[in-house]
Design a protein around this nucleic acid. Structure first.
Lengths: 357, 357
DNA sequence: GTTCATATTGCATACGTATGCAAATTTGTA
DNA sequence: TACAAATTTGCATACGTATGCAATATGAAC
């Protein structure tokens, strides 16, 4: 243990009790919502608390109540610009429920076991996992301990863990439809991480959507959801003699990089020479220099759903897996050639929504 | 309080003690670094702990030791892409010291008093403030409580709170020198927040730097460190009949927006018609579509310094204010016309470093 | 084997708070 | 005013862990 013993313990509820001339349990009841305390006693306690600078000790309270009011959020990295937005929204939504966000980020190896040990030691009330997974034994442990877990923007093959996602497969298919309707004849896909559910579903949807139009020849490279790897993948794909004229990139974080490579290294005009569609609809996709047509993820609603599941499960003690699947929209901007129909205006945005849907 | 009582308390050290045939205090000593425990007893305890699935209760330990090993990080928003990078790096650096990051974010009004009450209730071991300030009475409370506070990328007029910043004033001056040396004759500055130390210093440096070259006529608009407001400020500034030909924008987050407005709404070529320099050197400044010449903030070193101060003060109990001021470099890219000399190659980047420095 | 210094162990206690429960007080109604 | 019901209060205790301290065990030197 470190040396420093200079952190002062703080004013205790016993000190407030003595000052107010009541018992320690009256002080506690004053600060416990719903507990029985008379107005007169409450005022005395609050006055003393204020005078003494009392702040209840959440650590002690957590020990007694078996409720830390801490939610662990695990995000291996924040580089993908989707996740900072999610994090900010989570901070807001959790604070509104009087929960606090213990963040685990900045670990590169994606192995979350050491992280998991730490958060379990803190007896967190719930866990939100983004961009990382949970082994089945750790999942079991959470179930046994009665701690709700929600996967954010991710699923597992087992349905045992709650999740909030969007219809990535339908999204991929919608993009395929859009590009085909735009008259494109050759197609490429720059993949995310091969072991990620979001990538698998987006890829599958895209491939199936193209196949439904009789197209089976799709060029695929992997970008690992990383800017550097996406640049490499783009260079490889755009160097082919049979270069595809329409690209679906698995997320906007990579799409931005791919567009830079296409324009500045290959001198391609977007969308005249190459159409490009991303996924997530994060900040830079919307910036004028990029204007990426992108499948949106309704971030606020996803966060709402996540916090909703957590709060319900914490309150009820029933932590059976629950899955919320939300719809996004294909937001049309300037990065891809347009179909002749199916584009509607919605909330000040152009949306691709063909007639059959 | 919520209903749910279904969160299981977890295996206790007393249960491990019973299983291993030793006392509870032997179990505790096994898990306390540096405590006296024989090899034989340690093995017995570890075996039992593993078999029972014991995880020490960090909450209970925090109460006893008066050490939560939690550091509160307060960042009002993550929209400015500098801060997600900082956050990720902080997560990494704190985890390396076996501290944990309690994040407060997503509050728009910048009033951190409710946030402060919450974090103090959790008896955090230290506080890092980015993009927000601390009133003098709260600062006093931390000093009295022996809790170290570090302002990240910010200072206050009082020197009472530790801080880690870069030389914003010298940065602004360097930018002025650079733009003057590039042959520019008229200048503008798009400010951040008027009450922020970083903005004040950058602006002051820029103004003084220009004045040293006999230039006193600088057009100023305020962007409030917000993309929307920066766009508005850019439109206003670029609509002037006496439009400046060189712009310093207080941070890259805004510079990206300003560049989009200049190019796509005013049809200006960068840097032929308008030179543009930003600050922070965050991700998008480096992207090829932008290529913003920008004063870099050495983010990793800043985080290191921050964590260094915190760890020292926690360990020693001496929380007298300490100030670390780091140097950045003016990283030259494609957004501004170049001077004829002073540009050197450093670590694969072009740096503006005139002879006198 | 004895002595001395050091390491180890378990007991008892404390940390600051919430809560069960019995006693005391207050409130509402006839 | 009396009585029943509801509210309030303080006492005693527990939560899970670390630690001071006295008792015991161990290791090294003679």
């Amino acid at each position: 243990m470190d040396g420093g013993v200079n952190k002062k313990p703080g004013v205790t509820s016993s000190q407030v009790a003595g000052h107010a001339g009541v018992s320690q349990s009256a002080v506690s009841r004053t600060f416990t919502p719903g507990a029985s305390i008379s107005s007169k006693t409450r005022q005395k306690v609050l006055a003393s608390a204020k005078e003494l600078g009392y702040r209840p000790n959440a650590i002690a309270r957590s020990l007694i109540t078996n409720r830390s009011r801490i939610i662990a959020v695990v995000m291996a990295y924040l580089e993908n610009l989707f996740y900072p937005d999610v994090l900010e929204e989570l901070g807001r939504a959790l604070a509104a429920e009087n929960y606090h966000l213990l963040l685990f980020t900045g670990f590169m190896d994606r192995d979350s076991d050491p992280v998991f040990d730490q958060l379990m030691q803190y007896r967190v009330d719930g866990i939100i996992l983004a961009s990382t997974s949970l082994s089945s034994e750790l999942s079991e442990e959470c179930a046994t301990a009665g701690i709700p877990v929600v996967l954010f923007n991710r699923t597992t093959e087992r349905d045992a863990v709650s999740s909030v996602t969007t219809r990535n497969r339908e999204g991929g298919k919608r993009i395929a439809d859009f590009l085909v309707a735009g008259g494109h004849k050759s197609f490429g896909y720059i993949a995310g991480l091969e072991n990620s559910s979001t990538n698998r579903d987006r890829q599958q949807g895209f491939i199936e959507g193209l196949a439904a139009h009789g197209i089976t020849d799709v060029v695929i490279e992997t970008g690992n959801y990383s800017r550097i790897d996406a640049e490499t993948a783009a260079r490889k794909m755009l160097s082919r003699p049979d270069r595809p004229e329409a690209l679906f990139v698995a997320n906007d974080h990579m799409a931005v990089a791919v567009m830079d490579v296409a324009r500045y290294e290959f001198g391609l005009n977007i969308p005249q020479d190459l159409s490009l569609v991303g996924y997530d609809d994060v900040g830079p996709a919307r910036w004028t220099s990029y204007g990426i047509t992108s499948m949106s993820q309704p971030l606020k609603r996803m966060v709402e759903a996540t916090v909703d599941i957590l709060m319900d499960q914490i309150a009820s003690g029933d932590i059976e897996a629950e899955h919320r699947i939300l719809n996004g929209d294909l937001v049309v901007r300037t990065s891809a050639r347009l179909p002749s129909s199916g584009i509607v205006e919605r909330d000040g945005q152009q949306i691709y929504r063909p007639r059959e849907s």
